[in-house]
């Protein structure tokens, strides 16, 4: 068992690197994502200013922090969008999934490599340039404090893990229903809202915000973003991180359990 675990790190890193490179090679994709990302950042910055101009009880969060939040929310959402559900769904449907299962590396781990490679590449090649441009031309602010700066990275990674574990659960449904593209499409609609990337939970009407905090989704974007802008601070930061880690462990374990069952079913039915 121990032997197995140590030996899967190298292939995991190789898979991650492969998918990062694959993403980076697509120059048109990257350049257009940067262009659309900047456009969205501009749109969001002015939208929030327009919203703040409307007659309404003044929000507690200052406008520059809110703009920072919104732009980060947009780039994080874009970075986390990968095609792995469609891809794995396709392989399950065609039966090519058998090749993935036959490999001596855990399927959940190798897909995580695929996911992380893509996400890291998108973050570095798309999100960072958009953020840099926003920092020059828009009200985009640096992290609220040194602690926020230090914790933001790990929190983002935990968020990505939670995002992956949910995606993985969705694509497991493909073992039962041949087509889960619809669920993924719906998720793309939910995601900006449920993760808090579009609307911070504190702007949601009373009960809804509290209810959503109990779900795993805010761990993906809301938690790291509110740490970055300093809305979550002090001891709350560590509680937030612990919650993220907790969700990641629970969801990954659930995924692993159902993956085993799915594979088992597959090996009995022969696809």
């Amino acid at each position: 068992m121990i032997h197995n675990r140590t030996s899967s790190l190298a292939p995991f890193l190789a898979i991650t690197q492969l998918h990062a490179r694959r993403t980076l090679v697509a120059r048109v994709d990257i350049l257009s994502n940067i262009a659309f990302g900047v456009l969205l950042a501009y749109g969001l910055a002015f939208l929030w200013q327009a919203l703040y101009r409307a007659e309404f009880v003044p929000p507690t969060v200052p406008i520059d922090r809110m703009v920072t939040y919104a732009i980060l929310g947009s780039v994080v959402t874009t970075s986390l969008q990968t095609g792995i559900v469609y891809y794995a769904n396709w392989r399950i449907r065609t039966g090519d999934i058998i090749f993935d299962i036959l490999r001596p590396i855990n399927w959940q781990v190798s897909l995580l490599g695929d996911f992380f490679g893509t996400v890291i590449a998108q973050f570095v090649a798309v999100a960072l340039p958009v953020v840099a441009i926003s920092a020059v031309f828009l009200d985009f602010r640096p992290p609220a404090s040194t602690v926020a700066a230090l914790v933001f990275g790990p929190s983002l990674i935990l968020g990505a893990l939670v995002s992956y574990s949910i995606v993985f659960l969705i694509l497991l449904l493909a073992f039962r229903y041949t087509q889960v593209g619809g669920i993924e499409s719906a998720m793309r609609g939910f995601r900006p809202l449920l993760t808090g990337a579009l609307v911070p939970l504190w702007f949601l009407p009373g009960g809804v915000g509290t209810a959503m905090e109990q779900l795993p989704f805010p761990a993906i974007a809301f938690t790291p973003l509110s740490i970055y802008i300093g809305e979550t601070e002090g001891a709350d930061i560590w509680v937030a991180l612990a919650r993220q880690a907790g969700w990641a462990v629970v969801l990954l374990a659930t995924g692993a359990y159902f993956a085993r069952r799915g594979m088992h079913k597959l090996s009995i039915q022969g696809g």
């Binding site: 990062a20 490179r21 980076l24 120059r27």
Partner: peptide, 11 residues
């Protein structure tokens, strides 16, 4: 085809 240049962007 996979030679992607110094910064990986194949510029």
């Amino acid at each position: 085809a996979l030679k992607t240049g110094r910064f990986g962007l194949g510029l």
